[in-house]
């Protein structure tokens, strides 16, 4: 059953983004940025944790999860060491995603050439 839930939620997010993409002149870059900000907002009020506990990987695969990871790291740091912890902790959870994407992009761009 949980597989069906994750299918449903991830598909739902993709369908809404496709609708926005068709109806407006936004590019995929805009959509990704909007989704990250949306993830930050939902996570700031604790809604995203409920989504993850209900939809599991369906909620962690979309890019909205990136915003959630940033916010959870920042709030953990804030609880530990105050305002400086916000800046210390913001990349604790989301760091693996960013650094892995950078390393992957660098290595792949060295290995392959653009095909025309």
């Amino acid at each position: 059953m949980i597989y069906f839930y994750s299918f449903l939620f991830c598909g739902f997010v993709c369908a809404i983004s496709q609708y926005i993409l068709e109806k407006s002149k936004l590019t995929p870059g805009h959509i990704n940025t909007i989704l990250v900000i949306l993830g930050c907002i939902l996570s700031g009020f604790g809604i995203y944790d409920k989504l993850i506990s209900k939809f599991h990987a369906g909620a962690t695969v979309p890019i909205t999860n990136f915003g959630h990871l940033l916010v959870t790291g920042a709030s953990l740091g804030f609880k530990e060491s105050g305002v400086i912890g916000l800046f210390k902790g913001i990349l604790i959870n989301a760091g693996p995603g960013i650094s892995f994407a950078i390393v992957c992009a660098f290595i792949i761009s060295l290995l392959f050439k653009v095909k025309h």
Partner: peptide, 28 residues
């Protein structure tokens, strides 16, 4: 230019992450 397009995701992610991380730290 590696961050040409993804830079916006990281920039707004971190700015909004700081703001809402503060809110989350206060609320939860």
């Amino acid at each position: 230019s590696i961050f040409k397009l993804t830079g916006s995701i990281i920039l707004y992610g971190i700015v909004f992450g700081i703001i809402f991380g503060f809110i989350r730290g206060m609320l939860l």
